[in-house]
Design a protein around this nucleic acid. Structure first.
Ligand SMILES: [Mn+2]
Ligand SMILES: [Mn+2]
Ligand SMILES: [Zn+2]
Ligand SMILES: [Zn+2]
Lengths: 138, 138
DNA sequence: TTAAACCGTGCAACGGAAGTGCATTTATCG
DNA sequence: CGATAAATGCACTTCCGTTGCACGGTTTAA
């Protein structure tokens, strides 16, 4: 728990009770979470607080936002080495068509693509949809 | 104009006046369009009609839906050879951070990626964000 | 040819999710 | 302690996508 407090402080985010709980919640999940997920997990807390917590976490590089094509923003903790406050950590994401869960594949970077003349890339998002490890039964 | 009628009929979509107009509108645009764009272009038509027209077009493989990360669904006509009713035509899309326009890069296919064991890919979406040809000035 | 069935269109309303303004509580610091 | 700033809570809004239902024209079959 003191761990989390330090992590937050290192990112210059004040470690309030709520923030620590949210961080803990996300750390225990291995999948990306939506605002609604957190809302359900912490029924007593107000949605706005959770919303702004995620925004703060995102600004400070604690979590990154994930667009998995569901039109519902997901969030996941950044890996220790990640510095996506500065530049996007271009790993890909996988969305399961069966269980509807989204995971970071942090080891799998988005391949470089050649663009037509005049196009300048600044960011990229690659989402693979299919059947996840759990659902495929391997 | 007769061209469009035939195109629609070939895809087993009845060529109503509205549908022909929408098709024409999309054919003239070189960029992906949102429902709101069409709505603005055809102020007299009802939003629902336009919405359902796009859905019909999509089901029949006349257009494909594009998720460019803006959380606003875009649509673009399918290329002549495209058969994305059956399998996804995996070209990438480019979204300009400056003019906010999204284009299909139909010549640029999404590169194959290796997934961890147990993961099965069924579909993929790759969006590059940056500065487009028009906005970069060459 | 005429009635029935079907399909396209329009109107109204709903729902989820993101976002904002402002009051209130809680923490920080002199 | 009081002053100040930050965090939280509540209410409300907006935007987009979506659906139900009714009306009217078109196709189809008796
Ligand atoms: Mn990720
Ligand atoms: Mn496209
Ligand atoms: Zn799954
Ligand atoms: Zn541009």
């Amino acid at each position: 728990m003191k761990e989390i407090e330090k992590t937050l402080e290192n990112k210059s985010v004040r470690p309030t009770a709520m923030r620590i709980l949210i961080y803990k919640y996300m750390a225990e999940k291995e999948i990306a979470v939506a605002l609604t997920d957190i809302e359900n997990a912490f029924a007593k807390a107000d949605r706005t607080t959770l919303y702004r917590t995620l925004k703060t976490f995102e600004e400070k590089g604690i979590v990154h936002q994930i667009d998995d094509g569901t039109n519902i923003s997901k969030y996941a903790l950044c890996e220790p080495g990640c510095n996506c406050e500065i530049e996007q950590d271009l790993h890909l994401h996988f969305h399961c068509n069966n269980c509807d869960e989204t995971v970071c594949l942090t080891e799998h970077k988005i391949p470089q693509v050649n663009l037509p003349d005049g196009y300048v890339a600044e960011d990229a998002n690659l989402v693979i949809k299919g059947i996840c490890e759990k659902c495929s039964g391997r």
